[in-house]
């Protein structure tokens, strides 16, 4: 598992946990605002990083062999 994958799993779990915490325990409003501002975007981003498709190993090789054709 590479670094990006690990980080995104940690972020996903942390943000999900904080959102659930805010729903269940109903803390003071400013804490809820802080949680929603930080956690909702991070949750979506990390969810995307975790669920995005991965190319297979031999496809990876092919992509690397492709010459850089510039912009």
């Amino acid at each position: 598992m590479d670094k990006l994958k690990t980080t995104s799993w940690i972020l996903l779990i942390a943000s999900f946990a904080s959102i659930v915490y805010a729903i269940i325990f109903n803390p003071v409003s400013w804490i809820v605002y802080a949680i929603s501002l930080v956690s909702i975007p991070l949750f979506i981003l990390s969810l995307g990083l975790v669920t995005m498709a991965k190319g297979s190993k031999d496809e990876e090789e092919e992509k690397r062999r492709e010459p850089f054709i510039g912009y």
């Binding site: 501002l37 930080v38 909702i40 975007p41 991070l42 979506i44 981003l45 995307g48 669920t51 995005m52 498709a53 991965k54 190319g55």
Partner: peptide
């Protein structure tokens, strides 16, 4: 787009390149 395989450009300013999208959402 959200579930597509993504790569990040070699030339990008990391982690700024990703953080800026999170900033828009925030």
């Amino acid at each position: 787009f959200f579930i597509k395989e993504s790569a990040f450009p070699y030339t990008a300013a990391m982690p700024f390149y990703i953080a800026i999208t999170a900033m828009l959402s925030m």
